[in-house]
Simulated scan of single mutants.
Amino acid sequence: MILWLLFLVLASWFRLKYPHVAMGAVASSAPILQFDDITPWSSFDDTVSQDFKSESLNCFSVIKAVWDVLDDRGSNHTGLLELSKTFRACKTVQSADSLGNWLATAFTYTAMVDYPTPANFMMNLPAYPVKEMCKIIDSFPTGADVIDKAFAAASLYYNYTGDQKCFQVEGDDDPHGLNGWGWQYCTEMVMPMTGSNESMFPPASFSYENTSEDCLRYYGVRPRMHWITTEYGGHKIDKVLKRFGSNIIFSNGMRDPWSRGG
């Protein structure tokens, strides 16, 4: 994910920064406007949610409902034991938050790679995986447990090939290189993100102050919050592109969660 996102924003930034060197650039899924207050902070989660909602309102509603149920059942040790069995966790999970993150990762990344053909860019997935996830949820009988539905859908992302006996819900497993992204985020690329009430994810807020403290605690650095827009611009991008930033092809589709940022 890091290289994918970074290379594609760099393509557009290189053209903007050095128009006398680069004749053009192709930037797909390049959120060059996902900084400062240029793009609504809830846009990423809102787009993921709209992807699922466009396939099935029931699918959207099930995912939106699962977080409160998960928190309620995971509020005690007995509940966590049962949830660990339901999620086929390799080890008993210690927090319902871990299960929530596991589900959210599956839904988010599936929306990011919702290609019309089978692909293994992040995980082995079928064509139109968001549609396939919603088919799984919609196939359950009326009254079925929302957690069972959400787990079955997320399993498409984690185990489409069917070869996983259990899932590493907690621990240091980092198949997508997100640990590196944390450092990148905390040193250069602060992208404010929140969750709105319209999203299928729980509401979430963003604070520059809290982000700074988190980065200092985890990495020993404080982020340069506005370095990207200072170095590469972003505000009034329409005028920038008109004056000297031509020949940049932004090829992301509107179902791409990053599309509203670039």
Results as ranks from 00 to 15, higher is better:
58 N>Q: 09
29 S>K: 05
223 P>V: 09
208 Y>T: 08
119 A>W: 00
226 H>V: 03
100 G>V: 03
162 G>H: 05
8 L>D: 11
163 D>T: 13
7 F>H: 12
25 A>F: 07
237 I>V: 14
211 T>Y: 05
65 A>M: 04
31 P>A: 11
11 A>D: 09
21 V>I: 15
125 L>P: 03
261 G>K: 08
166 C>Y: 06
40 P>C: 09
73 R>L: 14
6 L>F: 07
71 D>C: 01
39 T>W: 03
31 P>W: 10
103 L>W: 03
99 L>D: 07
229 T>C: 04
165 K>C: 01
79 G>I: 01
140 F>P: 02
31 P>G: 10
85 K>A: 12
240 V>F: 01
115 Y>A: 05
35 F>D: 05
67 W>H: 14
201 F>I: 05
108 T>K: 11
205 S>G: 04
223 P>A: 11
62 V>L: 04
234 G>Q: 05
10 L>F: 11
212 S>E: 15
250 F>N: 05
228 I>Y: 13
50 Q>K: 14
160 Y>E: 02
14 F>Y: 10
105 T>N: 13
93 V>E: 07
139 S>R: 04
75 S>C: 10
143 G>I: 02
58 N>F: 06
154 A>R: 09
1 M>L: 10
122 M>R: 03
86 T>Y: 02
117 T>L: 12
113 V>S: 09
176 H>L: 14
166 C>Q: 09
255 R>S: 11
